[in-house]
């Protein structure tokens, strides 16, 4: 109904683009972007393996075998070799993906929710509320993110939950800033005024009028944080602040295999490869999405 009911005097440049077809246009552009496709396939494979780990893995990730310690890549029965305790690397990497990716994706997810909430509140209500929220957030900008993450994890103690918590704290400030600036932009437009004089509650106005107009850019920004999150989360585990051995996780594995670099260097470097590849894929994917949506970085 949208496409056919187009009136004769149209504004130039917007012919036939309803909100639905803009979405389709983005998808169409993405489908032609081979970088996006390759990155998505690779990421999909990793994610898929992580989810289906029991089906895809060849060994029990925890089973130790001192005799077959530090076998090289391409050994019989162990495609990617074994670690310092004889555990199969391939299986450990697959299972490790679960924790590594969870510790990377969950904080961004939570920070997106919290950050958007705070940013919208600050932008919509303005004035004192805005000052309080944004100034408090400014304090966190005084710390470099790595330091903040390490300090919080270090203070709270090593556990997966604390890693997620500290990363949420690291990501909420930048996301809030983007949400607040976009909200402030939109709130200045007349249709918000019009909504206000309708007598609708603030919550309704935010829900109906504000949210869909700001969520796009904020979401794109948040998704660009995923690659950083992967590196930070695994980095924290690498320092011993996250998962504890023998639980498989890429950062922890990279750490415990450090001494193995003199014996089987490339096996020892494997977990890091996965971190790198995942981070790279997410970066490429988010860059492609941003280009396809025409949003300037």
């Amino acid at each position: 109904m949208n496409e056919s009911a187009v009136s004769p005097n149209l504004d130039a440049g917007h012919i036939g683009t309803s909100k639905n077809s803009r979405f389709r246009e983005t998808l169409y552009r993405l489908a032609k972007d081979w970088v996006f496709i390759v990155a998505s396939v690779v990421m999909g494979a990793i994610l898929g393996s992580a989810i289906l780990a029991p089906l895809v893995a060849t060994h029990d990730p925890l089973s130790i075998s001192i005799l077959s310690r530090l076998q090289p890549i391409g050994s019989e029965g162990h495609i990617l070799g074994t670690d310092e305790l004889g555990r199969d690397m391939y299986s450990r990497l697959i299972y490790g993906a679960r924790l590594s990716l969870a510790m990377a994706l969950l904080p961004v997810f939570f920070a997106f929710g919290i950050g958007t909430g705070l940013g919208v509140a600050a932008g919509y209500f303005g004035g004192t509320i805005n000052s309080i929220i944004m100034r408090s957030i400014d304090v966190f900008f005084a710390f470099p993110s790595v330091l903040l993450a390490i300090a919080i994890s270090g203070a709270l103690g090593s556990s997966t939950t604390n890693v997620i918590l500290s990363l949420v704290i690291v990501f909420v400030p930048p996301i809030s800033r983007v949400a607040e600036s976009r909200t402030t932009e939109v709130v200045g437009l007349e249709y918000i005024d019009a909504a206000r004089i309708s007598g609708a509650s603030d919550f309704t106005i935010i829900r109906v009028h504000l949210f869909s107009n700001i969520v796009g850019p904020v979401f794109v920004y948040a998704s660009s944080m995923i690659s950083v999150s992967i590196i930070l989360a695994s980095g924290l585990s690498f320092l011993g602040l996250g998962v504890k051995p023998p639980t498989p996780e890429w950062g922890v594995m990279l750490n415990t295999l450090r001494n193995a670099i003199y014996v089987q260097p490339w096996v020892a470097a494997l977990p890091g490869c996965f971190i790198f590849v995942s981070s790279l894929c997410f970066n490429l994917i988010s860059d492609s999405i941003r280009t396809a949506m025409d949003i300037k970085p």
């Binding site: 949208n2 009911a5 009136s7 005097n9 504004d11 917007h14 019009a194």
Partner: peptide, 20 residues
Amino acid sequence: TRFEGLFPHQISGGQRQRGN
């Protein structure tokens, strides 16, 4: 029947003002 389902950028300035 025509304008109900249209978005603001699909109609002219005069029509938008009527909508307002």
